[in-house]
Amino acid sequence: MPYEVQGVVALGKGEPVSVETVLVPDPGPGEAVVNVQACGVCHTDLHYREGGINDDFPFLLGHEAAGIVEAVGPGVTTVSPGDYVILNWRAVCGECRACRRGRPWYCFSTHNAAQKMTLADGTPLSPALGIGAFAEKTLVAAGQCTKVDPAAPPAVAGLLGCGIMAGLGAAINTGGVTRGDSVAVIGCGGVGDAAVLGASLAGASKIIAVDIDDRKLEWARGFGATHTVNSAATDPVEAIRELTGGNGADVVIDAVGRPETYKQAFYARDLAGTVVLVGVPTPDMTLELPLLDVFGRGGALKSSWYGDCLPSRDFPMLIDLYLQGRLNLDGFVTETIGLGDVEEAFAKMHRGEVLRSVVVL
């Protein structure tokens, strides 16, 4: 018997979202139904609403979520009803060539629930990032559920499911930031500030936050930035070089994902330094760089997929650090809201007024 719940749905491209009745089927083999307790409002959800991901409308939005497992389907052994979990959108398969090479964070065959959630009239829904958690319950693949310590509040824990993990992982996993490194982060929204936090956690000696908004730069200081640069008034490449003895930073993270910010990152790194792209470009963007500069500067140019995280490894560890008071996740929660407030949360996000609005159910 399907569960009948309320969820936030994008019915058409560019249309305001609405709260609709959603039918969630009983879990099938390898699936789980989760009672969603909290879900962050991420920019990716807005991309879905605007048709920037694909045209598979209607979408059940929401993906940065934590909750309690309600039921599991046949063959599920990794989670049980009552488990407190963070949802992830890269449930690794364990069988593809990346997994078999011991690099499951690059899994090329991640999976989602096989069944579809639907509107009350039977219209199939496309869940955002295979999750769809702006809803009282959602259906996911069991591998998308990562058990963590239930002492962590869901409004905080759920944020590890996407943006914070992407930024932290870009610094620690992809960028390999370590003790004494100099780090620059371009773009200080939620993902960029998480990269700042990750660099601080890893022991970077100098963390330079770059943005065009002084309010965001102040937020970055709160997560560990030692220096800030307003790139609307100052050339960020020159500023980063000046702050690093004329050399450039060891690791530069582009949390914006535009050609101009990527070029800034490329030229603001030290010789043989590392550039990490974690901001998501749009399909029409192209990049032009002198190939001799790419060759002559050495180092590494990397893209960070979901912070190159392995949820089963990283989520419990980061929650433990939070509970020990060593990881400021609370600072990302600007406000808590209800399901009916998501459209206004998109507007606040677009205006740069919030790091994260979090739907609490």
Rank of each mutant, 00 (worst) to 15 (best):
Q6C: 04
R103N: 09
V210P: 04
G51R: 03
Y84N: 01
E4C: 10
G222T: 00
A220W: 12
A171D: 00
A157C: 05
G130N: 10
G161A: 06
A157F: 13
G62C: 06
G62E: 07
V85M: 03
A66T: 13
V210M: 09
Q324I: 11
H43S: 07
S80L: 09
G102N: 02
F108M: 15
G245S: 11
G296R: 11
W105E: 13
T21H: 14
R179T: 13
P104Q: 15
D314S: 05
V41T: 04
F315K: 08
N328K: 14
E31R: 06
G299A: 05
L139Q: 13
A209N: 04
K147F: 15
L168G: 01
E238C: 02
V34F: 07
L125K: 15
E242Q: 12
T282Y: 06
R97Q: 12
F266H: 09
P25W: 03
I53E: 06
N112H: 14
G189E: 07
I131Y: 12
A255G: 11
P316E: 08
V252F: 00
V41P: 11
E344K: 08
T261M: 01
G163S: 04
H350D: 11
L60Y: 10
S80C: 06
P29I: 13
F346Q: 00
C39Y: 15
N54L: 07
N230S: 02
R97G: 08
A128V: 14
N247D: 09
L87T: 01
V358W: 13
V148Y: 05
R297S: 09
V72N: 00
T21W: 13
V360G: 07
G340S: 08
P259H: 14
P124S: 05
Q37W: 14
T244W: 04
T234K: 07
D45M: 02
H111C: 11
H350E: 14
H227S: 07
C93R: 06
A114F: 15
G190D: 04
G163C: 08
A113H: 11
I212P: 04
G298Q: 06
V237C: 04
L201A: 13
V79R: 00
I186Y: 02
A204K: 14
I68M: 08
P16M: 02
E50M: 12
E353M: 06
V333L: 11
C93W: 05
P124L: 02
A10H: 03
D254H: 04
F332W: 05
E31L: 11
T21F: 09
N247Q: 13
T110L: 12
S109K: 15
L61T: 07
E353N: 09
Q37P: 06
F266P: 05
R241H: 05
V156E: 12
H111E: 09
G52C: 10
P316L: 07
V5T: 05
A194F: 08
F346G: 00
A120H: 12
P74F: 05
Y322F: 13
F59Q: 06
A184W: 01
A220P: 08
P16Q: 04
I172M: 02
F57E: 08
P2E: 08
G82H: 03
